[in-house]
Nucleic acid binder design. Structure first.
Lengths: 140, 140
DNA sequence: TTATACTCTAGTAAAACTATAGGGTATATG
DNA sequence: CATATACCCTATAGTTTTACTAGAGTATAA
């Protein structure tokens, strides 16, 4: 029940882009240096974020990444789902690609996993990048 | 953010033991056959469950496993924690064995992981084996 | 024209997961 | 007391996933 580094690094990268939004596109290497990550790895994390419309890329000199939409319209859940796929403790209650098993109808544990799934999504969707931005700038 | 088979199989095994509680100790091979699992693998899952007092073992002929305490005193969270360790989306908010990082003090994302951790534990602790037992016996 | 920065694809080492296997010990029963 | 039953302990092996690393290419501002 752990988040992978994809989700954690990706969220930190998104926050970095959000914080520097005013200054224009943020290049990968800047994020990587700030967050002490491999820029080559970060590069790969930005692909699904772009595909999901959470960031836009600007190529060429002075290029980099900008937010795909306003920070208050991007939730932590959006970011995690883009990077790690549907948030679900088991595949049989995965909404996108349910891996139904024979016993689904009688399965007593299934209901618990559904409830856990909903709760996880609810918590992660209750935070937007804007919220994180505000907290980050509050720090002295 | 997936549960491993340990957690899923373990919960099903515990439910099986709870359901057959009246008939005395339930041998591993019975659980394994009912749930279509490898009994050799199941054997390993029962070790941590026993260490955590969730089941007791009875050796010898007519032996098997019985619940370590009443079904309404065992939550799904107890079972998952016994099998998979502390329920936490990241190690830095793991209560038992916190893997604090340098940035913990300023870390904006940390608060979200705490809230997610609490929510996950709360959901899983809101179901007892007794609840599951009741649902299971309701099925025609 | 050139430096900057994104894009796409492939490969790889390490860790975690999911078992399988062998040899042992305790105990109820006949 | 012999024996079948069933738990107990440790080791290991195959597979998958994770977390990168690397090479070659493309677009664009200056």
């Amino acid at each position: 029940m752990k988040l992978s580094t994809k989700g954690r690094y990706g969220l930190r990268a998104m926050l970095e882009i959000a914080l520097q939004h005013a200054k224009g596109p943020v290049p990968i290497h800047v994020i990587a240096e700030h967050q002490n990550l491999s820029s080559r790895y970060l590069e790969q994390l930005l692909i699904p974020l772009k595909q999901n419309g959470l960031v836009k890329s600007v190529r060429g000199s002075q290029g980099g990444y900008i937010l795909g939409r306003e920070a208050d319209k991007i939730t932590v859940g959006d970011i995690i789902r883009a990077l790690e796929g549907p948030i679900s403790p088991v595949d049989c209650v995965n909404e996108l690609n349910p891996d139904e098993c024979d016993r689904a109808e009688f399965c007593v544990t299934r209901r618990i996993w559904s409830k856990l799934r909903d709760s996880m999504n609810q918590v992660l969707d209750s935070y937007s990048l804007e919220d994180l931005k505000n907290e980050a700038t509050d720090v002295p």
